[in-house]
Every structure is written in structure tokens, then in C-alpha cells.
Nucleic acid binder design. Structure first.
Lengths: 345, 345
DNA sequence: TTGAAAGCGTTACCAA
DNA sequence: TTGGTAACGCTTTCAA
């Protein structure tokens, strides 16, 4: 562990207080109102050019920065879009999605803020978010929000609450990321390739159930009414766990496995190969997420390509909802899943 | 692309305004002051039990949530720690670090907020952050902040500004993540293993220069004064790019390569093997980041394990700095780099 | 063209 | 034990 040494530290220097618009006004020799007019380019009022310059100069000299809280308090609203920061490690897909979304909302003049609510849950979290009076709340992932929470947020002025995950919540717009579709895709693919005894990896790591269980369910649904069987395979993201699973592979008597995602798939495929199981001859393997790295294995890893909604579309949904808060909550299925067939299946 | 259809949407229902402490007071039949006392458990004042209950009930009935902006305006300070959200895709290391940091700061009663400043740069960004009057600002990555920015932030009341990246900035605390050390580590290792013609992969992707260049420099430094040569190898994170590089491998006449990180290393190693280059016999390969997936390749990928500071330590640094804003900025090197020797080098 | 003043939601001081 | 009131920094209406 990298330690940061603790220093007792000497003592302070400039506790000079932060400049307000009143300070700027004083320095420029005008009233606070004038300062506000100048700095906000208020078009309803015309201020003489010399005055403008004096104000600007004063502001720069003092290093004046307006106080967002005071402003939004006065205005009665803000343009803050709040997202709880995800508490689980996110992949490149999601990272990029967030980035894109922030950019798109920024273009619509919203400010995106990810709120770190680690260790705070349910309605308590919703309350904490509501204290910031965001104009919209965007909740990724499952479970962190109930109908209660939606009510709290709306009561406190949130004009749009959007969930982005496996379930939809009463009163909130929902972008349904239906992970069953991923499993369904994988299941159908394996079935079509003639596989009948199908294993489904379920990660043992916490926080992933809300993705893994629907994916498993999707496989079940795809195979329902056929002669194929589905076997649940708990697996931790460690080599030993994979080795243990591989060791009892013959006994399991499976001819295919959907491994939750590409990372677990790579882990398991390696363990299988090390254990003498031929892929895809003895067992077909398919992952999900379409990571670049999956293409590097031999055989190349088949996968389910997942498409998230574009940040732009989501930003537009948010904007629409904010402008028309009374509208009935929309629910959209927004998870595109398509098989990318390579060599492992 | 997953499209979200656009709905014209019906019209509003309950534009009921958000309840304030005055509403609670009215409903409970007490003054606003009393409400404040009760809800904040003010110990200096004793409120009768029946009154407390009435207040609590009124608050619950109205769904009252205090207004953070008003509170911090009144208080003159907040406990918000602001971090600009990273604009580049982050790996699991960094994700986990953020998570840990949020948790640790949460325990110290700070609120962590990641501010999405996509497309806003330099001092403009600093101004935007300053508007929120955070008590501390934590800037990851390089370049997004200059000494000007630090001044703006401090003037606007930030009691601690901490950078977390390759360079340190005047006036701010710095957690120096010295990526040269990573390169140095890798370079020394390869040299010790008898390699003398060493390639260093430099990703072509934008936004990575501030990591890749120091890593390259570190290799140079490790090899300085020896008979070893260093060759810079631009590489995009795509199979074709890797294939192209592999195609001219013999011509390059290298006996080792440090591939920036494990992902690029895996990409390149595969391309080399496909091109008939034996690893490690003809060319040794080493990556960095110690990803699990590197262990799955054959040969197992050697890597530089990188250790970030613990979130707890950083949280403590922030807390210390906030409590003692006058203290001289601390600068710590906080990047632990150690070689994990496996089979590819 | 500029200034005075009210008010946004809280909290803390001082009276009652 | 409780209530009135001022103040935080800003914007905006109204008046000069």
C-alpha cells in the first residue's frame, strides 16, 4: 500500500474572505444591480460601455466568481442533472456512455453532477439527492430507487426522474436495459448451433446479480419448451475458481456455456483449455460485451454485442421531460443485443 | 444505434411547489426557528417532546427536504468535495480508487461530487467549479488545471486543492503519480533479463499522452548510459494497427517491448505470435496494470503492477488540508510500481 | 442609465 | 421552551 505520510503542518496565511458582487460593485463604484446586469449581459437593460468595462475590470481584479447556490436559490431552480455515481466498477462501454451523455447534456446547458452515494441506500439516498434540488435525476443501475424515492425527488422539484437499468420504477421514466435480451440472444445462438446442454455462468461477485440473473433468465426463456437444459454455474473472477469449475467440467456434461460477459468467458475458456476441454468442439463458449480482447484469444471469442442508447438520445429525453414535467413517464427498451459469431461457438 | 422515440407528450398534473421549513412550521403550528432546532437536533436548545413530534410529523407529511443551497449559503461553507469527472475511459484500478475515496470521504462527512466538465477547459473549468464553492477540489489527470485555476479556486473559498496526476501545480497539494517509475521499472526489468533493443509502445489514442510519454521517458531513463536502445512504437488499439506493426517487426530488430499497458500488450503479443515472432524467445513483452486477463494468455503476460494510494489516505490528506488551509502544499509520490514477472519476458 | 429594496430557504442570535 | 429577526449572495422589479 502506498502510504501518504501525515504532516502536522504549519499555520495559515490569507483567510481573506471570498469576493461578492457587492465587493465588485464597491470597487467599480456602481450598485450591485449594475454588476449583475453587466455580468449576466442582461438584454433588458442597457449599461454604458465605460461602466461595463469598469465592472468587468473590477470583477477580474477581485477574482470574482458568482455563487451558484445563491443564484439558484434566488432563481428558484437550477439546471443540475444529478446522477448517483455507480458503485460497481464499470466497463469501457458505460464509461463512454456517461461521457457522451455529459457532453450532450452540456450542450443543452445542463450541468451534470455525479453524486457519490457510497454506503447510502434507498430512500435515504433519494433524500440526499433531493437536498441539492436537481432539475433532473438520472439513476443508473437497479435498486437504488423506489417509488418512495421518486416521490421525494419530485416533491423537491425534480422535473424529471429517469431510471436506467433492468427495472422500471413507478412514476419515473425508464430506459429499460433488458439484460434478458442478452441472455436470450446467447441462448438462441447456442441452440441454433445445435447445443443442448447449456451452462450459464453467474458471477459470485456482489452487485452484479441484477445483470447476471436477468441474463440467466433470458437463456432460460430462449430455451423454454425445447429439449435443452440450463445449468447455473457460479464463478468468481479468479483463476482458482475457474480451475475448480473446469475440473468438474466432464461431470457437468455440458456442450456449451454462456459466460455472463467476455471477461468471465475468457477466464473460463482458458481454464477449460488448460483442463483439456476443446473449444468449441467439446464445449462452445460465448461471452458478452464485445470487448476487443476477446478477439485476441484462440479460438476467437464469440460474444453478444451490447448497444447502449446514445448519450444524445438520452439527453434529449431528459430535456423533453424537464420541459414537460407533467407528461406521462415514458418507458423504452433500449438495449440492443446482437450475436457476434466468432470461433468459440 | 438504439433510438429513443420522441413523444409529443400530454400535459402537466401537480405543479405543487416544494415545501419549505416555513410550511412545516405552519402545519406544526410553530415557528421556523423551532423547526430548524428540531430537525437539526440542536443541542443548545431544548424543545419539548410533543413539539418535536408535531414537527417531525409535519415534515414527514409534507415530504420536507431541506434545501442544501440555502443551508450552505447561510452557513458560509459546505462540505462538498468536487472532482472533475474523468473524460477518458478509466480502468478498473481507477474506478475502484474513486469508489474507495468516496467511501472514505463520506465517512469523514464530506459529500463527493464528480462534476462533468466535458469540453470545458483550463481556467474556464476552474471557474465553473468555483461557482459551486466546494470546500475542496480534487483534480485527477493532467493539464486540466493551472496555477491560475488554483488561485481562482482558493479565492472562492476552496480550502484544499489537490492534484492527482503526473505533474504538480503551484499552490496545490500534489499526489504525484509518477508514470516514469512505471517505465523505469519495465525498462530495468527488460535490461536485467539481457534485452538490449527495446521497443516502447505509445498509444495513438488521444488523451493518453500524459501517461504514455512519461512511461516512455522512464524506460529511456532506466537505460540511459547503457548500450541498450529505445524505439518508440506508435500503436492504435485495433487489430489492424497491431498487425501492421507486427509485419515490420523483423525489420525493427527488437528483442523486447514494453507495451504501455496490459491491453496494448495483449493486442501486440497476439499480433506478434500470429506473425511468427516467438514470445519471449525472439521478443520479450511486458505490459502494465496487472490485469487479471494478462494471466490468461500463453505465455502469461509479465506486467508492472501499479499501486495507487489508498482512498483512505487521500481522504485523510484532504481532511487535513481542509482543517488547516494555510499549511504549505504537500507533494507526495504515490505511485508504487513493481514488476510482476511471468512468462512473456 | 442607475439605485434601492425585496425575497429565495436556512440558521443563529437575542428576547420573551 | 419558543418566536422574531437578521443575514448569507444573488437577481429582478420598480422608481428615480
Amino acid at each position: 500500500m502506498v502510504q501518504i505520510p501525515k504532516t502536522p503542518a504549519p499555520s495559515s496565511s490569507t483567510p481573506r474572505s471570498v469576493p461578492t458582487s457587492a465587493d465588485v460593485a464597491r470597487l467599480a463604484g456602481v450598485s450591485r444591480a449594475t454588476v449583475s446586469y453587466v455580468l449576466n449581459n442582461t438584454s433588458a437593460v442597457r449599461i454604458s460601455e465605460p461602466t461595463r468595462r469598469r465592472v468587468h475590470e473590477a470583477a477580474k481584479e477581485l477574482g470574482y466568481v458568482p455563487h451558484a447556490a445563491a443564484r439558484s436559490l434566488r432563481a428558484g431552480h437550477s439546471r443540475m442533472v444529478l446522477m448517483p455515481a455507480p458503485s460497481f466498477p464499470v466497463g469501457p462501454l458505460y464509461s463512454q456512455f456517461i461521457s457522451e451523455l455529459q457532453w450532450a447534456l452540456g450542450r443543452l446547458d445542463y450541468t451534470v453532477v455525479q453524486y457519490g452515494s457510497v454506503g447510502v441506500h434507498g430512500d435515504e439516498a433519494a433524500r440526499a439527492w433531493a437536498e441539492l434540488r436537481p432539475v433532473a435525476v438520472l439513476v443508473p443501475g437497479p435498486g437504488s430507487l423506489g417509488p418512495q424515492g421518486v416521490t421525494v425527488l419530485k416533491r423537491s422539484g425534480a422535473r424529471a426522474v429517469v431510471t436506467l437499468g433492468p427495472d422500471s420504477v413507478d412514476g419515473a421514466h425508464a430506459l429499460l436495459m433488458d439484460h434478458e435480451a442478452v441472455g436470450h440472444c446467447a441462448g438462441s445462438h447456442l441452440f441454433d448451433r445445435g447445443r443442448r446442454r447449456i451452462g450459464v455462468v453467474v458471477p459470485e461477485e456482489d452487485g452484479l446479480e441484477s445483470f447476471s440473473l436477468p441474463r440467466l433468465e433470458g437463456v432460460r426463456r430462449a430455451l423454454h419448451g425445447t429439449d435443452a437444459t440450463v445449468t447455473e454455474l457460479p464463478l468468481a473472477y479468479e483463476e482458482e475458481s475457474a480451475a475448480r469449475l473446469a475440473a468438474r467440467w466432464r461431470a457437468l456434461d455440458l456442450d456449451a456455456v454462456f459466460a455472463y460477459n467476455d471477461e468471465y468467458a475468457m477466464l473460463l475458456m482458458r481454464a477449460l483449455q488448460d483442463g483439456g476441454v476443446r473449444v468449441p468442439e467439446d464445449t462452445a463458449v460465448i461471452g458478452a460485451d464485445d470487448l476487443m480482447l476477446g478477439r485476441l484469444l484462440r479460438p476467437r471469442l464469440s460474444t453478444v454485442h451490447i448497444e447502449l442508447p446514445s448519450g444524445r438520445d438520452l439527453a434529449e429525453l431528459v430535456d423533453r421531460a424537464v420541459r414537460n414535467p407533467g407528461a406521462a413517464p415514458e418507458t423504452h427498451k433500449v438495449l440492443g443485443a446482437t450475436v457476434v459469431h466468432r470461433d468459440s461457438s
